[in-house]
Design a protein around this nucleic acid. Structure first.
Length: 511
RNA sequence: CGCGGGGUGGAGCAGUCCGGUAGCUCGCAAGGCUCAUAACCUUGAGGUCGGUGGUUCAAAUCCACCCCCCGCAACCA
């Protein structure tokens, strides 16, 4: 049995779900649906990362305990993904006992193996912020928040011998060209690894931070950030049992945004090496959504809220834009103008209108009853089928490389061809001559096949729409019909439903 | 010389890894159709693919150098 384990990052509960979170999660969901439809057993993990300074701070700001704060934001993420129809299999929280247990087991293992040591860390510490600053973060040598010069302090902490694994990691990445994708990020990681890798500080003294998982070998310290957060990918599988872990872990595929490349491409593999675990299979890295009106920020009022987009335009419409507009790996621009343009052109004018015009003819001319196909097909008929076969092949090729935009382009090229086919064959003209009604019926039969194929293609990208088209064609719920050859699916007396408007054109007032 | 990315018709973007008529959406011009969501189809105008040089029969695509813009630069999710 082929398996695939997909993960989103664990979202940090210091912010509410925004466009970036939504994009990563939708990508994960799309991949899951795609591979599921290929007969692969999939497991999709998402969740929330809930420990650390920033959470304590955020909780303090809203006057609640860290746990209450984390509960609230975590629930918000979960309900958002539910409302968005994300088909995740497990939602993990780093504050849950089974996760803490796994983190402690892994830490203990690495400690016992001698790859964690007690050392000293010095840095610029601001007592107002209760955190260290790097020199670059300081403005004129002062803390940007308090305008005060930080104090250089030294602190005892635990360190992970990350540098020890540098060579092994380099060799691994070099011998596994697809380990990090797209390639630009692999190049970046290799470039980074040309410099010596320092050891990683993995603890905070409890005197400064209590909101964390205690180190199993020293109860005066808690683990700090990544050792806690990254291990979730393992602890979620362990929760399902050792066998489940064995089956899925080697098939782990992590999806992340470029901001957390280093932890995932460097910290995490070396941690796995130290823990004696196999490395994950792939790391897929995407870029940022840049708001046309400048940086995304609440004060500018240009924050894209996933639930709001769903409510205004429908989830599939929102998904379509995100998948079609961004080249996976590169940054993309988000603007409402581009959104409206894309949606009107591709979903309303093309897909929606096409479905509607075909079903309208089927209804008007034959009262929805699918007509038989004759033995001989015209050149156009054959061509139409080939166009869809080709689109299916291209789709597969593009999905393997995370080229969502190109996969959709391939589908839409087939839709364009279908519109052309309608004009070329003009069934609406044939219907004026009673002798040619049979031919018009055949043409419509081919067009219904085009829609059937389209609905199969759309399953991973636009799940609701795929389902709706299926329902309009009166195709029962159940497995994909992609394997049924063109022209053999619709049986005599099959009746399709009257047209429905799938995507209304968006007319934006100056709101 | 820190690392990486981007610079393609009026606008926004694909295409660059694997060289071979420069593609898509919007906008503009002309025509067609009437089945459809003022939609759909055809044709046209508009590009020295940031610059210079090189490799090649052939370069947006490979190589070198230069200019402009943007991220990252380690314990900061």
């Amino acid at each position: 049995m082929n398996r695939l384990y997909l993960t989103t990052p664990l979202y940090y509960v210091n912010a509410e779900p925004h466009l970036g979170h939504t994009y990563t999660t939708i990508i994960a969901d799309t991949l899951k649906r795609y591979y599921q439809s290929q007969g692969i057993e999939t497991f999709l993990l998402t969740g929330t990362d809930e420990h650390g300074d920033k959470i304590v701070q955020a909780a303090k700001d809203s006057g609640v305990e860290p746990k209450d704060h984390a509960d609230r934001i975590s629930a918000l993420f979960r309900s958002t993904w539910d409302a968005c129809g994300i088909s995740y299999d497990h939602f993990i929280r780093t504050t849950e006992p089974y996760h803490k247990q796994t983190v402690q087991e892994v830490l203990k293992g690495i400690y016992d193996a001698g790859d964690i040591y007690f050392g000293e860390y010095g840095g610029f510490y601001c007592y107002g912020c209760e955190r260290f600053y790097t020199e670059k973060e300081l403005t004129d040598g002062k803390c940007p928040d308090h305008q005060k010069e930080p104090t250089y302090i030294q602190e005892k902490n635990y360190f992970f011998r990350m540098g020890k694994y540098q060579q092994r990691l380099i060799s691994f990445i070099q011998s596994h060209p697809n380990f990090i994708q797209p390639e630009r990020y692999r190049t970046e990681v290799l470039a980074f690894l040309r410099e010596p890798l320092e050891d990683l500080c993995i603890s905070r003294p409890k005197s400064r931070l209590q909101w964390g998982i205690p180190l199993p070998f020293d109860s005066d310290f808690v683990t700090y950030v990544w050792f806690d957060a990254l291990i979730n990918y393992v602890s979620a599988l362990k929760l399902k049992g050792q066998e489940f872990f064995q089956d899925f872990w080697p098939k782990a595929n992590h999806l992340i945004a470029k901001d957390i490349l280093k932890p995932h491409a460097i910290f995490w593999p070396t941690m796995l090496m130290a823990a004696g675990l196999p490395l994950y299979e792939h790391l897929y890295v995407h870029g940022y959504w840049v708001m046309e009106s400048g940086k995304m920020s609440k004060s500018l009022g240009n924050v894209i809220r996933p639930l709001e987009m769903k409510k205004r335009f429908g989830m599939d419409t929102f998904r379509y834009f995100l998948l079609r507009e961004m080249v996976f790996g590169q940054d993309g621009t988000f603007s409402m103008d581009a959104f409206v343009m894309r949606v009107n052109a591709d979903l309303a004018n093309n897909l929606g209108n096409l479905v509607s015009r075909i079903l309208a003819m089927q209804k008007r001319y034959f009262d929805g009853v699918v007509q038989p196909l004759g033995g001989s097909w015209s050149e156009e008929d054959v061509k139409l089928r080939e166009v869809f076969l080709q689109a299916g092949e291209e789709l597969q090729r593009h999905m393997e490389r995370l080229y969502f935009h190109r996969a959709l382009e391939s589908i839409w090229a087939a839709l364009d061809r279908t519109n052309q086919y309608i004009v070329q064959t003009s069934p609406f003209l044939l219907m004026k001559d009673p002798d040619r009604h049979a031919r018009a019926g055949e043409i419509l039969h081919h067009l219904l096949e085009a829609l059937r194929m389209t609905s199969n293609f759309l399953v991973p990208f636009l799940p609701e729409t795929a389902k709706e088209i299926r329902s309009l064609l009166a195709i029962p719920e159940g497995p994909s019909t992609a394997e049924v050859p063109w022209g053999t699916y619709f049986q005599p007396a099959h009746i399709v439903r009257p047209p429905a408007m799938l995507f209304p054109r968006i007319e934006l007032e100056n709101d």
